[in-house]
Design a protein around this nucleic acid. Structure first.
Lengths: 310, 310
DNA sequence: ACACGCCCATCCAAAAATGGCATCGGTCGA
DNA sequence: TCGACCGATGCCATTTTTGGATGGGCGTGT
């Protein structure tokens, strides 16, 4: 019981009646416009006035005119009615997926190249889909997908199937990041053996499990043992160390768009060919209506990614 | 028939039901809050969803939660409901006269001293009364009062009684405006004979009938004949001519607040004592609820005016 | 695993609100 | 003064809404 005096509130229908009457200044015509007869319209307006406790229309048998309070209420009533229409419209748009918000988790690395491309696509193909961005590492994304904090994640494998639907959205090669002056820059491409016994900035197994495991596996297979200098999980931090001359790093192509001064890149031949893969994942039972439209964007990019990886 | 598809619009009652359900996330409790039982509340929400064509609440027998569209619509619904309340409140305030707009006509001369004082009073005693100002000469004000373009006029007599109610709000003496160097400035006060045969800037009979007739009458009674130089109706234009040395002018005290360089003022003794009077006038049948509060302001000033003129 | 409890949907009869028709009362113009 | 016009009112039929009883799905506790 927080309400006002004694439960009495006007209804939108009464507002519509009032607006019609206030605009026509004639109950008969107003009633016609409302597809009804004059008496009920009179009653609706009386009701409205009674609820407000205010006379809105001064009516003699000869003329109808607005009272000052009625003039003010007419403006308010129009505003309310406009708002109801736009509310209905906006809600329908959200439900149809034309508009809405997708909360997207992404790894720092995917933010360098894939994400900007995706957001550009969105701007041209689905401008009414808002994308809320949350940077987080892959493991956090899985957690957030489960709790619903994000709708879609851009993350590295492995991803548990079952709960999730996944889509490979990017596939890139590893490239070596080398400091200015490194003799290996003389070669146009490197092989893993070029890192044997040389300082290499490594990925931390906790924060960047995917890269850590991938590199560890590659070096083991190739029987090459670089000197691991430091374990980081943020690619931009690794490039900083490269620039400081502390060693080389193996990073996904996307990192090349970071453009660190005095850090240069060379392709790396690996056996087996080891593309770095980026997946989109979302809960199969996600009911966000904007998801379908957003996934269309991702699939458009997938074509490029597929072509590149073939 | 400008409307959307096939006449179906939601009602505020449905909005209130939805908001309750969305906030409680429990139909039973929501129904209690709405002072009704659960089935009708279910129906109202179904109806709302049907009208919108959108599912707003996802309800399993175990839990109720908002759909994305429902989240958006909840915000809109709250906005609409807030607006309805404030609309009712604002309208009641207007009707009670606590707030509102008074359209006020005023003569240029009253704008120099009386009007600023009045507006200051309003700011402290009736801050919710807006005053729309329209400068016009007295005759225009009478016309505008009749057509309702202004609620109240601040004007010079004569005012037809009958249709109007009037109130003397200011009463001032005539003062002489003299250019720097005029020998009459040596006296501390002047009499009408000081203007005999001297150049005097006169009022135009059309635009400033009140002043024109008053001065003409005064000079005739005193058997004094100044040399009329030019006929103007705007006091500030007259003072400009005084400043240019073209002659003296007789103006109401209020004009002293104009502070023209090199224009000085001296009191004038007249027989009979001829106070310049300013009246407020309004249609007796004006139904603007804010009028009462505004008239209270005027009456507060009237006390001062009365004391001054006594 | 089964029974119980919780919760929303549906059905139905009663109550309320709404709309329409006929009519009244007041005002203006011919 | 009469007639036309216009909004208010009384009354009745219809539609809409309400509330109680009930049904059915889904977790939960034992």
């Amino acid at each position: 019981m927080t309400g006002a005096s004694f439960w009495a509130q006007f209804e939108l229908h009464q507002l519509r009646c009032f607006v019609a009457a206030a605009e026509e200044l004639h109950f008969g015509r107003a009633a016609t416009r409302m597809n009804m007869t004059q008496p009920p319209l009179s009653r609706q307006i009386q009701l409205l006035e009674h609820v407000l406790g205010v006379r809105l229309l001064d009516r003699t048998s000869r003329a109808v005119k607005l009272t000052p309070a009625g003039r003010v209420f007419l403006l308010e009533a129009r505003r309310i009615l406009r708002l109801t229409e736009s509310a209905a419209l906006a809600t329908r748009r959200i439900a149809s997926g034309e508009a809405g918000t997708i909360t997207l988790g992404f790894t720092a690395a995917s933010g360098y190249s894939f994400l900007p491309r995706l957001l550009l696509q969105r701007a041209s193909h689905a401008p009414n889909i808002d994308v809320a961005l949350k940077e987080m590492v892959s493991s956090e994304q899985v957690e957030s997908l489960l709790t619903g904090r994000i709708d879609v994640g851009l993350l590295r494998p492995p991803i548990e199937r079952g709960e999730f639907t996944t889509l490979k959205v990017a596939s890139e090669q590893l490239v070596a990041a080398l400091p200015f002056g490194d003799p290996r820059l003389a070669q146009s491409s490197l092989s893993l053996t070029d890192f044997d016994g040389k300082p290499l900035i490594m990925y931390a197994p906790e924060g960047a499990r995917y890269f850590h495991d991938m590199l560890t596996g590659l070096f083991k297979t190739a029987k090459v043992a670089p000197v691991a200098i430091q374990s980081l999980s943020q690619i931009h931090s690794m490039l900083s160390l490269v620039r400081a001359g502390m060693g080389a790093a193996l990073v996904p192509e996307a990192a090349m768009s970071l453009h660190f001064d005095d850090v240069h890149f060379r392709p790396v031949r690996t056996t087996p060919a080891a593309p770095v893969e980026l997946f989109a994942a979302w809960r199969s039972d996600n009911d966000n209506p904007a998801l379908a439209a957003f996934l269309d964007l991702l699939r458009a990019d997938e074509v490029d990614a597929g072509a590149a990886s073939d």
